[in-house]
């Protein structure tokens, strides 16, 4: 039992220590954490049994918001960017959500895809506003009014992201445990029953949808700032697919899975691109197939199974790995 709780803490500590030991990993890990936030958004919806193939929309909306904030206010302010980006993503989520929560399953997925592709095409086409396919540069913003050098800024961004991710992970965990989270789960299992109880399934799903859009938005801002550039590729359907991919990889029903999945994904992707430049997509594809076919509970599921075997005591929910890490 103890081991089960200690390992996640050690893992978080390892991630926190890694940039000190190997500086070049810092930005890669920051990007992974940013993506992890977006994946968290996917996981919120998966809780209600719905899969969005268009959540890159909110990622991109927030990233471009950050870029515009930076452009309009001489470099911009990191905190302002995060607030504005997340807010715009949440509001966009509210409007898009009003339409899409009426639908389920494949229709839900496709409608989301449609919205994201419209935004993608818009970003590509309106060159004079959005910079077209080359996107917009995001200059290094100040942090609470302090101008920073790249080294300091990147370190701050990494540890800031780590803290944000832990906080967001905890908040999402709490949200999913709250009455509204339980009602979302009922949408997955038996929606009619929910309606009989006098609860509006649409309103419930909408609440979850806005939360998931906001999480994606927060991730998008971090990504934009860490990369220093935003491009329409942020909204491209393959990016949405990537989020779902990571969610499954990490373990679809767990908050911890979002981050474990995105860290592993980013590392595999970076090293596949570096050492198997000709076949990195194939490596990822095979990796994904193997997970779905042989370990459909994802990495967190594998971890739990392993712990169960070691400890011989079941009964702990996967999410508790994250709780233990707090």
């Amino acid at each position: 039992m103890a081991l089960r709780k200690i390992i996640p803490v050690l893992l978080v500590a390892l991630v926190a220590a890694l940039p000190l030991l190997a500086p070049f990993t810092q930005v890669m890990l920051t990007l992974a954490l940013a993506k992890g936030l977006a994946v968290l958004g996917i996981i919120v919806l998966l809780h209600a049994g719905q899969v969005s193939f268009g959540h890159a929309l909110f990622f991109a909306v927030a990233a471009y918001t950050a870029a515009f904030v930076g452009k309009s206010f001489a470099g911009g302010e990191l905190v302002a960017m995060m607030v504005a980006g997340t807010l715009v993503a949440a509001v966009t989520g509210l409007f898009v959500g009003l339409f899409v929560v009426r639908y389920r399953h494949i229709f839900f997925g496709m409608l989301n895809l449609a919205f994201s592709m419209i935004f993608f095409s818009f970003l590509e086409k309106f060159y004079h506003i959005t910079g077209g396919s080359d996107g917009l540069q995001v200059l290094r913003p100040s942090v609470l009014g302090i101008e920073m050098e790249r080294t300091g800024f990147e370190m701050l961004l990494f540890y800031g992201s780590l803290v944000i991710c832990l906080a967001a992970g905890w908040a999402t965990w709490a949200f999913l445990r709250s009455p509204i989270g339980n009602m979302m789960q009922t949408i997955k299992t038996n929606e009619i029953r929910l309606e009989y109880l006098g609860v509006s399934a649409r309103a419930t799903l909408l609440a979850g949808y806005v939360v998931s859009a906001a999480l994606c938005g927060l991730g998008g801002v971090l990504m934009a700032v860490a990369q220093g550039i935003v491009t329409p590729e942020y909204a491209w359907w393959i990016r949405s697919g990537e989020f779902v991919f990571i969610a499954i990889l990490g373990g679809a029903n767990s908050v911890a899975g979002a981050f474990v999945g995105s860290l592993v994904y980013e590392i595999v992707r970076t090293y596949a691109a570096a050492f198997a430049a000709d076949v990195w997509q194939m490596v990822l594809g095979v990796f994904l197939l193997a997970i779905i076919l042989f370990a459909s509970d994802g990495l967190v599921g594998m971890y739990n199974a392993l712990m169960d075997r070691l400890g011989g005591k079941g009964g702990m929910r996967t999410d508790d790995a994250r709780e233990a890490a707090e």
């Binding site: 899969v51 193939f53 499954i248 990822l284 594809g285 197939l289």
Partner: peptide, 14 residues
């Protein structure tokens, strides 16, 4: 459904 779609996505990447 989501897993099925992801399998075809993996095939696409390969």
């Amino acid at each position: 459904g989501a897993l099925q779609l992801l399998v075809t996505f993996a095939v696409f990447m390969i």
